[in-house]
Design a protein around this nucleic acid. Structure first.
Lengths: 234, 234
DNA sequence: AAAAGTTTAAAGTCTACACAAAATGGAAAC
DNA sequence: GTTTCCATTTTGTGTAGACTTTAAACTTTT
């Protein structure tokens, strides 16, 4: 058959299903009709119903199990998607002018805590890069990063005076796995100086560990200026 | 035709495409072969290629435009998905015993800042609920919440001594729009007392605004105990 | 009962094909 | 040269049908 204007699309089905959940017609934990039945109800094929339900399950509204069927999740595991932009993009999205400055860069033996964190051998070298990201002349983010030399040998030739380590890494090394955390930390002396705030102030902090095929590549701490908030809508 | 063991699945295609991007065979910004060509290469139908590429685009690796084709995103807008669990689940996932305690609950005229924040009329009533979430006897989260009475009239009969306002709301107001922020704040006197930490300590803080069909429902501030971090892997 | 094996219902995925919608790039009109 | 319009390409989505995989539910054996 052909796809006409009156066709029920997978979008319509998603909408209808959500509406029924919202209205309470389909209670949490209850079982939905199976795909075949819904296909009949919506007069479309099972394929179309499948796509709608699959996407709703991806989005955290439904739980699907073969043979068991599809049920409404009681505590919708609604997952917030935070887009993690590069600092440059974030600043420019705010309408500001991005400016980058290298603070220090040095290769040395990996400190113990980093070995533990990244499962490095105690004799492995890391390049330690500290840098600042500005919005115009206002500090935006202070970055403290370690790059595993064995995993990215080219790093010894990188010029972090002109390009930020994150941008350089993205261009240079593909990565496969990322662990990203956010927390609140106290401003120590250097953070306070770089971000222009009193020692002890709360600082919104991100930590990112990146691996390539199981090899640890880099560990970064990102300290955000006062007032920063990470926001998402869903 | 039939689906045999040697069939190329959309998963295989996703893997292969990712590998080619990672290896640099398909450079950032470059155009991929079109779906038909890839279907021939992988000896499967265009439908299967379409699903693989569509998902990769959803995941932020590719950009697809009709007629223009599919290209590799230069700065992969990889979005971190944080699952925002209910406090009870979070504590129990840590192997702890969840305990809830109501601190205070009162209905009053919405304060000015809240009217501004939620676009309320100045004479609207809100129920202000403060409560604690414990892991065993350790403070886990201090919650400060306002619920718009006009949007959820039943709230006046809710018994927040026995059930947390969040769990109550999820049961009562099934589905909503959410704006969620995270930031670092300073512990004031009451936060410090409830979370058992010194005044001025950094506190990882979540703020959530919830709407139902455009109507503001609730505003919540969630203050996490010392050491809390929100983590995701991808 | 408890464990092991079997049936079977439901989702998962693929094929093959068709038409729809968007947007690019070029042709035509100005 | 610039704008408008149109043909064409590429992705988007639907139909119809079949086979596959999982795991719940049932049956048999111990």
């Amino acid at each position: 058959m052909t796809q006409s204007n009156e066709t029920t699309s997978y979008r319509d089905i998603k909408e209808t299903v959500l509406a029924r959940i919202r209205s309470g017609q389909w209670q949490p934990d209850s079982l939905l009709p199976n795909e075949q039945e819904l296909a009949v109800e919506f007069s479309c094929t099972r394929t179309t119903v499948n796509r709608a339900l699959r996407e709703l399950a991806d989005e955290g509204f439904l739980e699907r199990r073969r043979k068991a069927g599809t049920r409404v999740l009681s505590a919708p595991q609604r997952q917030a998607r935070f887009t993690i932009p590069m600092v440059r993009d974030e600043v420019e999205a705010l309408g500001g002018t991005y400016r980058y400055a290298l603070v220090s860069s040095a290769t040395k033996r990996a400190p113990d805590w980093l070995c533990a964190r990244l499962a490095l051998k105690p004799d492995q070298d890391v390049m330690h890069v500290r840098c600042m990201h500005f919005n115009g002349n206002t500090p935006f983010q202070y970055e403290n990063r370690w790059i595993v030399v064995d995993s990215v040998p080219q790093v010894v030739n990188a010029d972090f005076a002109s390009i930020g380590p994150n941008e350089w890494l993205i261009q240079t090394v593909p990565f496969t796995n990322v662990e990203l955390s956010f927390l609140a930390s106290r401003a120590d002396e250097s953070m306070a100086a770089f971000l222009d705030l009193p020692i002890g102030e709360p600082v919104f902090t991100g930590e990112r560990i990146t691996w390539l095929e199981g090899q640890p590549v880099t560990f970064a701490k990102m300290y955000f200026a006062a007032g920063y908030r990470m926001t998402t809508q869903y």
